[in-house]
Design a protein around this nucleic acid. Structure first.
Lengths: 161, 161
DNA sequence: TCATTGCGTTAGTCCGACTAACGATATACG
DNA sequence: CGTATATCGTTAGTCGGACTAACGCAATGA
């Protein structure tokens, strides 16, 4: 009797996922990202009426100062086509102000408001707890290590491209 | 003069991404996954005229035996709505056979063909080299560790949901 | 002056994940 | 038996995110 025959009787034909599939790093990566994205999106929506783009834009404004939509687009990686909508949402919540740039009349100058600053603080808190959930099974040391590995991989593939 | 004033002169307002954004694990995760998915998709398309679902279905058939479309859907995580298309592609390449199940006339029984088995071997090779590219900057030990951490995280979030 | 470039915006494509509903079975229960 | 319920394969369609194309407008540089 082989090991397989000995152990797997409960109809593996239906439920199981083959190992070579389950172990592939790329698959682990994308499956985890699906969960992570869901966690973050739903968490931000539920607890702060926000989306991750809001965080990206607000953080960029706070940390690097005001800028045109194109500038923000470059800083955050949001496509300039999609930036319009994000800024509409943010302006609708009074978190940013969109004023024509006197120096270059093609531009809108985007500034963060006081409300925006408060919301950014809130978002940072919410994200902290969400990341706590995301990384729950890992020790602090493992979390740091995980992040380090991710960073190195991403750096490598960002330079290369 | 503050540290920031001392160091940042080259117009950080435009190009830089704020640190709190760049460091968030969830963001690292999704950005890396974008690159990873691209690498895998393009690699499989270019080197084996395949998509990742082909691999998932073929591996499932080879390792766990033939099954209905619904079964394959459960094994691979591909939605049964999308399974139709994937099996059309596979059948069009003569990698699987779709025959009506005599025992249950609602079902199609899917079987892997010899060509399918050969293609699966090829896909495994291609995926190995692609993962080598994906994990290039990491040592063997670090790769193992990375995979272990990913697995633990994914397990945690799969049970929880 | 005129060509080029960058800007904000609209519209629309593409793809993957996912839902809804269908006709055709199969199964369970009264 | 008969009828309700569940499952199967399939089609169609929604939704969100990434990305492209093209527009009118303003600034820039030869």
């Amino acid at each position: 009797m082989t090991a397989a025959e000995a152990t797997d009787m409960p109809d593996d034909g239906a439920l199981r996922t083959p190992d070579r599939l389950r172990r592939r790093t790329s698959r682990l990566l994308s499956q985890l990202t699906v969960r992570s994205d869901r966690l973050i999106n739903e968490g931000l929506a539920a607890r702060a009426d926000a989306r991750k783009w809001h965080y990206a834009v607000l953080a960029s404004l706070q940390d690097l100062g005001p800028g045109s939509q194109a500038t923000l687009s470059r800083r955050t990686g949001i496509y300039r086509s999609d930036m319009v909508g994000v800024l509409n949402e943010l302006a609708g919540r009074d978190l940013v102000e969109r004023t024509p740039d006197p120096d270059d009349r093609r531009r809108n100058l985007i500034t963060i408001s006081d409300r925006g600053r408060r919301q950014l603080r809130r978002l940072d808190q919410v994200l902290d707890t969400l990341h706590d959930e995301l990384l729950a099974p890992l020790s602090p040391y493992e979390r740091a290590q995980f992040t380090r590995l991710l960073t190195r991989l991403l750096d490598h593939h960002t330079r290369a491209s």
